[in-house]
Design a protein around this nucleic acid. Structure first.
Lengths: 218, 218
DNA sequence: TAGATTGTTAATCGATTAACAATC
DNA sequence: TAGATTGTTAATCGATTAACAATC
């Protein structure tokens, strides 16, 4: 888990799903699992599963397979779920409120420490015990609390200037629900994009072109 | 645009982004664009852009490039945005309400015709002019209106039985916000998954492993 | 020990990039 | 016409799959 080489984006994208399946297996009381058995459940090849795991070290045992609990714990460490990063949310509209109230940040490597929205209608409101603050308090809050990650749930046109501000305030990571291309301007930033409309259009393509039997996930 | 061969999932995943950039270019009044210029703006290679477009036909002109408006329109047809598929939403909780009120379905190849939620608190409410109905009305509604796509915004444990019902009611396509693996049970279904927690965990990985400079999108 | 299953190397497959002739 | 840029074929690169020796 120390000096690992470049892990490809394809492998990284599969890690959360491995973690999810391992959690389910553990809850179901399964103690050990082989790559073959896991491949059947996940719809991957056993080869790929072993290759993926071995990017991070040899977690298995020949002739036995993998210990579910141990592997799950390793996966949590690899994903960094044990080490909480302070995050703030920008924009408490429909989407922001849904995300803030629905996600279990503490189980995913983050703690939500602040929520900001310019709309006075939200004054005094809290989500998950976190008060919604006016944007005017953003700067002071960041100086004091040093959050590292920002969840961007703001309207399209507000994103560029806001990201400029956040970068200046020392944030370097973004969970981006807008279409603004953060990497374009800040190649150093850590970014995960959620493009709901892209996902929906992909489904439109699948329905109208593949007819039935579309296998693409997005 | 007719008898096209197997288009790879990688290409399909890039189409909505092309469409998005072309819309922006058109709004900015740009009439023509070359693959080279587009590659700079999008952070792809010119080669890849030409390869991608040529999966669907030769939309350009040597020595000139591509006509923005024409290419945008072609892209809309390829994505099937001009042909509306009737969709219903299951679950009007935080996330469902955010998605229903935020997405412009008619611009993305769908029309939202029904919303269903078992919670009596929602009786009489509407989202985007669409009333939220009790689950008891689902069956009749589907017989009468024949929706094809379902947006799944229900709690994890409700998904499997609900999908069974929806399949029997003739739906074959799903925009799936739950973790339930629809393709596992129904390989024929058209599915686009939105796994918010996977995206967030991926960001955790990037932050904690790559440190700065993570380039992965998810 | 014999059977099972990993870790890992080699082979295959597919996607991206480069090159260039065709042509506007 | 000369210059630009496509469409398309060939070369490269990377990811997935197969195979198998190591070993529990």
């Amino acid at each position: 888990m120390k000096d690992r080489k470049e892990i490809s984006a394809s492998v990284i994208a599969r890690l959360p799903r491995y973690y999810r399946f391992l959690c389910e297996l553990q809850e179901a009381g399964t103690v050990r699992i082989s790559s073959g058995e896991l491949s059947l459940r996940m719809g991957l090849t056993a080869s790929q599963i072993r290759q993926d795991f071995n990017c991070f070290g040899g977690f298995g045992q020949q002739g036995y397979g993998y210990n579910v609990e141990q592997l799950k714990n390793e996966m949590a460490v690899i994903l960094g779920l044990d080490d909480l990063t302070s995050a703030i949310m920008l924009g408490a509209g429909n989407l922001g409120r849904a995300v803030a109230s629905q996600m279990h940040f503490e189980e995913m490597g983050f703690s939500l420490t602040g929520i900001f929205d310019p709309d006075p209608a939200y004054r005094g409101m809290k989500l998950k015990g976190v008060p919604i603050r006016p944007l005017a308090e953003l700067s002071d809050f960041c100086m004091k609390n040093r959050p590292r990650m920002a969840i961007l749930c703001v309207p399209q046109d507000k994103a560029p200037a806001l990201v400029d501000d956040l970068i200046l305030l020392g944030l370097d990571s973004f969970w981006n629900f807008s279409h603004y291309d953060i990497h374009g301007k800040y190649p150093q930033a850590n970014v995960a994009n959620v493009h709901l409309s892209d996902s929906l259009m992909t489904l439109s393509y699948i329905i109208k072109n593949n007819g039935n039997g579309g296998k693409t996930n997005a």
